[in-house]
């Protein structure tokens, strides 16, 4: 058995020389997960998971705790390598052969479940670090911020409504503001796929509405995957929903269709009362 923790070499060994822009999405599919299995000490967090994402779609992923949602995100972002299966970006980029940071560069961006921002840095600096561009240490030693960069930062900050707080340390932001900042960091990173884990946890009603609007507006130019427990929120944004259960797909389709799916009802009502 391949050790789940034997993660890829992180020192920038470029196995796959293709750039994100060179991804072949002629079939309209941006991400393929085929028969992905990842187990922890016998427990199969992912069990033969198959999932495809169309370019530009907005997909909601729901499922009870332990269904494998976060693990799936770990696999897509390259944080964990599965024991078996294939993960492709477009037709031609094998994500399993790429280190995490290369996947993050232009392909897949991720918002963590717990809002994670660089608390010691300023709000604007948080965005600045995630702007697209070379991530080489040498460049970072020399680089000075340019007008273009500053404009882009202001643009993102305006979008997420934090422009007034641009010089504050990120650590002093409220929970909801941190969520927004992290979404802003994703915007600055400008990946083709955005994985958003529980984006509205800890947000007020108004903030939730704005988040929903933002995510919907992002879809189309980007592919957005939202993992959320809040069914009301899912209802606001979803057109296609995937239900995960015990590491594989239980049901897929429109929200109404999955909500009427007897298997889904059994999982939710029979096993884990999903109140959250």
């Amino acid at each position: 058995m391949i050790d789940a923790y034997e993660e890829s070499a992180g020192m920038g060994e470029r196995i796959n020389q293709l750039k994100p822009g060179q991804a072949d999405i002629s079939h309209g599919t941006i991400l393929y997960l085929e028969d992905v299995t990842l187990s922890f000490d016998g427990f199969k967090a992912l069990n033969g998971l198959n999932l495809t994402l169309d370019d530009g779609e907005l997909r909601c992923i729901i499922g009870p705790n332990g269904a494998g949602k976060s693990t799936m995100m770990d696999v897509i972002t390259g944080r964990r390598k599965p024991q078996q299966g294939r993960v492709f970006f477009g037709q031609n980029i094998d994500l399993l052969k790429l280190p995490e940071h290369e996947i993050a560069n232009g392909m897949v961006g991720r918002k963590f479940q717990r809002p994670t921002v660089f608390e010691a840095l300023g709000v604007a600096e948080n965005i600045e670090l995630t702007l697209t561009g070379s991530r080489s240490p040498w460049r970072m030693l020399k680089v000075r911020s340019t007008t273009t960069e500053r404009d882009r930062i202001d643009e993102v900050l305006t979008t997420i409504g934090l422009i007034g707080l641009r010089d504050r340390p990120a650590g002093v932001l409220s929970h909801g503001q941190k969520q927004w900042l992290e979404i802003g960091m994703l915007l600055a990173q400008n990946p083709r796929i955005l994985l958003v884990d529980e984006p509205v946890a800890g947000m007020t009603g108004e903030e939730v509405v704005r988040t929903a609007e933002l995510l919907v507006s992002l879809a189309g130019t980007r592919t957005v995957v939202v993992v959320e427990h809040d069914m009301a929120f899912v209802r606001k944004i979803a057109n296609k929903v995937t239900v995960l259960h015990q590491g594989s797909v239980l049901a897929e389709g429109s929200l109404t269709s999955v909500q009427n799916n007897p298997k889904v009802i059994e999982v939710y009502l029979g096993e884990t009362p999903c109140s959250n």
């Binding site: 050790d3 789940a4 923790y5 922890f40 000490d41 427990f43 693990t71 964990r80």
Partner: peptide
């Protein structure tokens, strides 16, 4: 080579 030791505690909690 094996940052979590020869016999790592497996599972999500460990990660």
């Amino acid at each position: 080579k094996r940052p979590r030791g020869l016999f790592p505690q497996k599972g999500r909690a460990a990660e």
